[in-house]
């Protein structure tokens, strides 16, 4: 008994020593890991979290370029609620997102499906699809201004199918869809990349089995491919919504927010309030609204994506 007890105790002591040693090793490894993470963490605090927090604080104050700060409580938010310009910018931003996000995802999914199989020139197509993502937005804006002009190809296409020739960028009704289409053009290539990666995970046996059972292309897509793509689609919804909320460059070049505020987005409003009007507190409040909007979309995605997982 004694022997057994001693052995057991010895064994337990040995386990405890090993455990402590492992803890010490983990602890040492943890510190090393932290040391590696620290530079990025410090940079994140300094250049991401700090300015974001500063922006939130700014929204409760009036701040001059000279550096004087005067706390205003909720005054900037009260102004925001009473400002018809803000509500118009919010509406424009949401409509822009509602047009551009679904179209981007549909285009990305369609083109990814077309180029998923290995065929002659598939790689070239995939590269070409990605080109708009790395093209200068300013340059894209200038080119699309011409495309949508009365003498441009867009008007020619519309004319050939019997629509009247108008410059979409001059129209308060069509200017927003026009800039949203440019937004789709600049972003769909990224979506194609994500979708192609996800399509590699779709089990080929399932598709082949469905084919053997007589399922058509649409049924195979709907019953087999689409469920597999769902996480990628939700990811793209979040990313593309975030990007669409921040649309600025092409709009700045193509319409300057017009005609008559038809393309005047929240980011445009934020830019003008800060750097044209020097109203940094008010601009901060707009920034907070934009942040909250993006956060809500991200949370919805997280909830839905979490359930999917």
């Amino acid at each position: 008994m004694t022997t057994v007890d001693t052995r057991d105790r010895g064994s337990r002591d040995g386990d405890a020593r090993q455990g402590n040693a492992r803890k010490r090793r983990i602890s040492r490894g943890g510190w090393i890991g932290l040391a590696f993470v620290l530079p990025v963490f410090v940079l994140f605090l300094a250049f991401r979290f700090g300015p974001a927090l500063g922006g939130v604080l700014l929204s409760f104050a009036n701040y001059t370029v000279g550096g004087s700060l005067e706390w205003k409580g909720l005054l900037n938010y009260q102004r925001l609620i009473a400002d018809p310009g803000f509500w118009n910018a919010l509406r424009v931003t949401l409509v822009y997102a509602l047009i551009s996000v679904p179209l981007t995802i549909v285009a990305a999914t369609g083109l990814a499906l077309l180029t998923r199989r290995a065929f002659r020139g598939a790689r070239l197509y995939r590269s070409v699809f990605f080109l708009p993502v790395v093209t200068s937005l300013i340059l894209a804006g200038v080119v699309f201004t011409w495309i949508f002009s009365v003498d441009g190809p867009w008007s020619s296409i519309l004319e050939s199918v019997g629509f009247p020739v108008t410059n979409w960028l001059e129209s308060s009704t069509f200017a927003l869809p026009a800039v949203a289409l440019v937004g789709v053009w600049t972003r769909f290539g990224y979506g194609v990349l994500i979708m192609l990666a996800k399509l590699q995970e779709v089990p080929k046996e399932l598709e082949e089995a469905a084919l053997m059972d007589g399922a058509g292309p649409w049924q195979r897509f709907r019953r087999i491919v689409l469920p597999e793509l769902r996480p990628a689609i939700f990811f793209l919804i979040v990313i593309e919504t975030t990007f669409s909320f921040q649309a600025f460059d092409t709009i700045y070049v193509m319409t300057s927010g017009g005609p008559v505020d038809a393309t005047y987005t929240l980011v445009f409003s934020l830019y003008r309030e800060s750097f044209a009007n020097f109203d940094f507190g008010y601009a901060g409040a707009i920034g907070v609204v934009l942040f909250v909007l993006t956060l809500i979309v991200a949370l919805i995605q997280r909830i839905v994506f979490g359930k999917e997982s």
Partner: peptide, 19 residues
């Protein structure tokens, strides 16, 4: 000056576009 321009410019544009 600039804040007034931001208010007035779209309205002038709206007049000239017939809105």
């Amino acid at each position: 000056f600039q804040e007034v321009v931001n208010i007035l410019a779209p309205l002038v544009q709206a007049v000239l576009l017939g809105q």
